[in-house]
Computed example of a mutant assay.
Amino acid sequence: MGILITNRKNQKKLALEKIKKTAQIILNALECPDGELSLLITDDLEIEIFNQDYLNRQGPTNVISFPMQQGDFSEITPYLLGDVVISMDTAQREAENMNITIEERFNELLVHGILHLFGYDHEKSVEDNARMEDKTFEILDIIKFSSFNPGEQP
């Protein structure tokens, strides 16, 4: 299966192959090159429903992860990591507020979502938050280095 991407935010042209390559870079950095995941790119309306139904939280959010490597039957499909859902509406607003590109913010959210699939959690403790933050920066550096092409002009 590999990396499956569904784009429900059709008014946004997205480079799905580039997103797939970025997700693979993240999996490689996490020493799980054969990991399988699905990515749903959606809007605030849909992610708000997921946030309410699955996390019992109000309003839209930027990213939600649904890990498959937890629970009683996780050993049945050891490479099936889970699902990541990203709201492009929220990502766009956050990118504008942070004065970064939408691609940069999307990559941050993709890393964040995939780290949750690997059990990283920023809400349990300050130490866990620091661990996740450190890993995020490490992987974002790998993504930037991997996408650098010396033949291109900055």
Rank of each mutant, 00 (worst) to 15 (best):
137 F>N: 10
60 P>W: 09
152 E>G: 00
122 H>E: 15
26 I>F: 08
150 P>E: 13
5 I>F: 02
122 H>C: 07
75 E>K: 11
136 T>D: 02
104 E>A: 12
134 D>E: 14
65 S>Y: 03
128 D>E: 14
24 Q>S: 09
118 F>V: 08
46 E>H: 10
64 I>S: 00
69 Q>W: 04
3 I>H: 01
89 D>E: 09
145 F>T: 15
45 L>P: 00
98 M>V: 00
12 K>E: 13
108 E>G: 12
93 R>E: 14
12 K>M: 10
41 I>K: 03
51 N>T: 10
14 L>Y: 02
50 F>W: 14
32 C>K: 15
5 I>A: 02
17 E>F: 04
146 S>A: 15
123 E>M: 13
61 T>R: 05
18 K>Y: 01
27 L>N: 03
31 E>H: 13
96 E>T: 12
46 E>I: 12
109 L>M: 14
125 S>T: 15
153 Q>Y: 13
47 I>K: 06
132 M>C: 06
77 T>S: 10
20 K>Q: 15
89 D>M: 06
49 I>V: 15
17 E>K: 13
67 P>N: 03
11 Q>C: 01
142 I>H: 03
103 E>Y: 08
99 N>A: 12
33 P>L: 10
26 I>T: 05
57 R>S: 05
68 M>P: 01
51 N>D: 07
90 T>W: 08
28 N>K: 12
69 Q>F: 03
154 P>H: 10
19 I>A: 02
58 Q>G: 00
79 Y>N: 14
145 F>Y: 08
91 A>Q: 04
72 D>E: 11
16 L>T: 07
78 P>I: 08
152 E>T: 10
8 R>V: 00
146 S>R: 13
130 A>L: 14
39 L>M: 05
12 K>D: 08
62 N>M: 11
58 Q>T: 11
27 L>W: 07
45 L>I: 11
14 L>G: 00
53 D>C: 08
33 P>W: 11
58 Q>K: 13
6 T>E: 15
75 E>F: 09
117 L>A: 05
19 I>M: 03
133 E>Y: 12
67 P>S: 07
110 L>D: 07
137 F>M: 08
126 V>F: 11
64 I>V: 13
104 E>R: 14
26 I>E: 01
65 S>W: 03
5 I>H: 02
6 T>C: 02
34 D>M: 05
95 A>C: 09
104 E>K: 13
60 P>R: 13
118 F>R: 04
117 L>C: 09
94 E>M: 14
24 Q>K: 12
145 F>P: 00
110 L>F: 07
87 S>H: 06
125 S>A: 08
107 N>C: 11
39 L>I: 15
153 Q>W: 13
105 R>G: 00
103 E>T: 14
4 L>P: 01
111 V>A: 06
37 L>Q: 03
109 L>E: 12
147 S>A: 08
30 L>T: 05
95 A>N: 04
12 K>T: 14
152 E>R: 13
147 S>W: 11
41 I>Y: 05
1 M>Q: 09
152 E>Y: 14
69 Q>A: 01
81 L>A: 01
33 P>G: 04
54 Y>G: 00
54 Y>T: 04
93 R>H: 10
139 I>N: 04
83 D>T: 12
22 T>Y: 04
153 Q>L: 15
53 D>V: 11
